[in-house]
Each structure stands twice: as structure tokens, then as C-alpha cells.
Amino acid sequence: MKKCDQTITLAFTGASGAPYGLRLLECLLQSGRKVFVMISAAARVVFVEEQKFALPGNPKACGDLLRAHFGVSEEQLQVFGKEEWFSPVASGSAAPRQMVICPCSTGTLAAVASGMSNNLIERAADVVLKERGQLILVPRETPFHAIHLEHMLKLSQLGATIMPAAPGFYNQPKSIEDLVDFMVARILDHLDIEHQLLPRWGYGNPTDPNRE
């Protein structure tokens, strides 16, 4: 495992899309990043339904489970509870400059857009916005109504990146894992993290008529 050279905050909330979040966490750890993780109660329900992966509600137990699952140390992966207000992510003086909410429920989207800060996920996102850091939100909902779109517009105007979980098909995916990797690759691109999850457009594109 590479030495941790950058810290990123990653939150899972209660939208469908647990495979995206879990794969993103795996890739961040493989890249050598240190990751601060937060998981909402609804996200734990989704993880069981979609991944058959039960995450304990207790942050310490959850951290132990995830570290064992990915084979990393406590230095590289830490889990914080929803009311750990003394954790680094709660203050602009210590929070990482980058944060991803993947998947992002429309409820979390609304709370962040409104500056609610009722739990640590919302507060961490608010901190990243106020400190002019990088906030990426990955909603997985369809269709969007006007309120959803208004919240996305507001957050985009504040500097956040809205990246709906909408994988492409031009890379001719052969499996669900390929579709998941497409989205994770786009997130990693925006975080400026190198990866080999899929070929770049125009470089080995299987549909390129000039490709031998």
C-alpha cells in the first residue's frame, strides 16, 4: 500500500448506488489516499440491500470492519459518527480540501444546499463549501423535479460539482462492474487521481473507425 499523501472525505448517504461508493473507497485507498468516512443510517440500509454488506452503526466497529475488508490501517481509513463534532471534518482549520458524497440522497442534497449542518455529513460539506474546497455530489435519482434541480443549481453556483450517477456506454461495458467503474473513473478524474479503470476517449476507443 502506498504512503498516504492526501486526505479526502467520503460520505455515503441513503440513495441507491452503494456499489459506486464502495468501489470509490477501494480506489481511493489503493491510490494511497487517507480517507475520512461518514455513513448515514439510511446508507447502511442501502448497503445491505444492494451489496449484502452490513455496516455497524458504531463508528469504531464500522471502521474496524472496513479496514479489515480493504486491508488498510487506522492511519489510512477513519470512520466518524454523525455527531462527532470534534472530528477534523467539522472545522475549516482541519478538514480535507476535497469531499465526495457518493451516493448522495436528494435529502442530503437539500440539506447541504440549505446549509443545515444537522449532522456531521452536512457540516463537513458546509465546511468544504465555505473554505472554497472541492465538493462532489453524486445523486442517484430519476426523474428530478424542480426542487432537486434548484438545489443542484444553487450548489453548482457555490462551486460544488454535481455528478449524477449516469454511466456512459461508449466504452461498451460488459458488466455492472464496468458501469460502476465508469462513474468512479469520472469522480477520480475530478479529484485529479490517476487510474486505469477505463481508456481515455480517443485513446484505444473500440468504436474508432481508424482503430486497427
Rank of each mutant, 00 (worst) to 15 (best):
P96E: 10
F47K: 14
E74F: 00
D64Q: 15
E84T: 04
L66W: 00
A95D: 04
E84Y: 01
A95F: 01
P56T: 01
E84H: 03
G63Q: 04
G57N: 14
E84A: 09
G81K: 05
K52Y: 01
V89L: 11
E84W: 01
A41L: 04
N58V: 11
F53K: 12
P59K: 03
V79A: 02
C62P: 05
V45H: 10
G92Q: 07
V48F: 02
N58I: 11
Q51C: 13
A42M: 10
G57I: 04
G63L: 08
V79S: 02
V89G: 02
W85L: 10
G92T: 04
R67K: 05
S73C: 09
E74W: 00
V72Q: 03
A61Y: 04
E74R: 13
L77W: 00
Q98I: 03
V45M: 12
D64L: 15
S93M: 05
K60Y: 11
D64K: 15
P88G: 03
E49S: 14
F53T: 06
F80M: 04
R44H: 12
F70D: 07
F53M: 15
V89W: 11
P56N: 08
G71M: 06
A94C: 11
L55Q: 08
E50S: 06
A90S: 14
F47E: 12
K82T: 15
A43M: 08
Q78H: 08
F70H: 05
Q78T: 13
Q76R: 14
G71S: 09
R67N: 01
S87H: 02
E84M: 13
G71N: 08
F70V: 08
H69T: 12
G81M: 09
V79G: 01
L55E: 07
V48C: 09
K52H: 11
E84N: 11
E50Q: 12
R97D: 13
A41P: 00
S87P: 13
F70R: 04
